[in-house]
């Protein structure tokens, strides 16, 4: 298992490097010169400008600039935000926990929906329950997160007035009251993301379980006289989860996209809303760093999926 882990980690490094190359290329190809303003300023003599460019390495060949950028990123020198005048890494660290909590909670919700519904539907294919679940799943992932978010606000905040629709970072309440308010304001963003993911996963789980349930080892387990619940849980679900884990890991980029949208709708002060406000304010260092953080998170979750994969299917870690 350790060997497998190390191998997976080593595979993740080229992916991260690849992503950094893609990001840097996008930035390098982008039109516009950071020195445009200086170039048109008559107060600055051309030789000063040339010296400044040389000292910042702007005229270096592109690969050289890539490596100096990469090493600066690795050393943690992410630059500072043009707008809020603090270091980008601090800004992101402030925002990251909220995003991770919202995403994490929504994934738990999605799993809590997808696993039981998917397994139950697959054990009774073409039953009424299966058909209803399937149709609802289609409806669920055809509803874009921004529309569900607005519908939730309309229903629960405006008509019923049960939940607040603006997320507050500084809650004045303390103790139990604080937890209660926190729950009330988090429930809509979490549910919007969770329901969307849950709908997609229900279909994954269902088709994976359907593939496993007809295999010989399941028939054997039944023939041994094991109760149906044990057959389903121990012999079917664990094996069915193997392809599901891969599909879930592939969905991570979509999850982060959904997180950006929900944070924007409910004004959750996370990394996603930081990205949008940075784009609207032309705050390039923040935009670059946030995109890189998202890419890093996707790689991290892929790694996590690989580890889970190794645990679910021990054959893989011995290969």
């Amino acid at each position: 298992m350790t060997q497998y882990l190390i191998r997976r980690l080593l595979i993740a490094i080229p992916s991260l490097l690849g992503i950094s190359v893609v990001l840097f290329t996008v930035l390098a190809l982008a039109p516009g010169d950071p020195f445009e303003e200086l170039a048109t300023n008559p107060a600055i003599p051309p030789e000063v400008r040339a010296n400044l460019r040389a000292s910042l390495g702007i005229d270096d060949p592109i690969w050289q600039r890539y490596f100096s950028w990469l090493f600066a990123m690795l050393r943690g020198e992410w630059g500072y935000s043009f707008v809020s005048r603090i270091n980008v890494d601090q800004l992101i660290l402030q925002r990251l926990p909220v995003t991770l909590v919202v995403i994490g909670a929504s994934q738990v919700v999605a799993l809590a929906i997808a696993l039981p519904v998917g397994v139950y539907a697959a054990t009774r294919p073409y039953s009424v329950f299966d058909q209803i679940a399937n149709t609802l799943a289609f409806v669920g992932f055809s509803l874009p997160t921004f529309f569900t978010g607005l519908l939730f606000i309309l229903l629960f905040s405006i008509y019923l007035d049960w939940l607040p629709f603006v997320y507050r970072t500084e809650l004045s309440e303390t103790g139990w009251r604080w937890w209660w308010e926190q729950l009330r304001q988090s429930i809509m963003p979490v549910m919007v993301l969770g329901l969307f993911q849950g709908a997609a996963w229900t279909r994954f789980v269902r088709s994976a379980v359907l593939d496993v349930i007809r295999l010989d080892h399941v028939t054997t387990a039944r023939a041994k006289g094991l109760p149906e619940s044990r057959v389903t849980l121990r012999h079917v679900v664990r094996n069915a989860l193997i392809p599901v884990v891969t599909l879930v890991a592939l969905q991570m980029p979509i999850v982060f996209g959904g997180a950006i949208v929900t944070e924007q709708i409910f004004r959750v002060p996370g990394v996603g809303s930081l990205l949008i406000s940075a784009i609207l304010a032309n705050d390039t260092p923040v935009i670059m760093a946030v995109t890189f953080v998202f890419a890093g998170l996707v790689i991290f979750f892929n790694l996590l999926a690989d580890i889970l994969y190794g645990w679910l299917d021990p054959r893989i870690s011995y290969r």
Binding site: I19, V26, P253, I279, I287
Partner: peptide, 16 residues
């Protein structure tokens, strides 16, 4: 497949 789609979309549209 492991690129974060939406942030990159936003980045590219912002830049170009």
């Amino acid at each position: 497949l492991s690129l974060p789609e939406l942030p990159l979309l936003l980045l590219i549209i912002y830049l170009f």
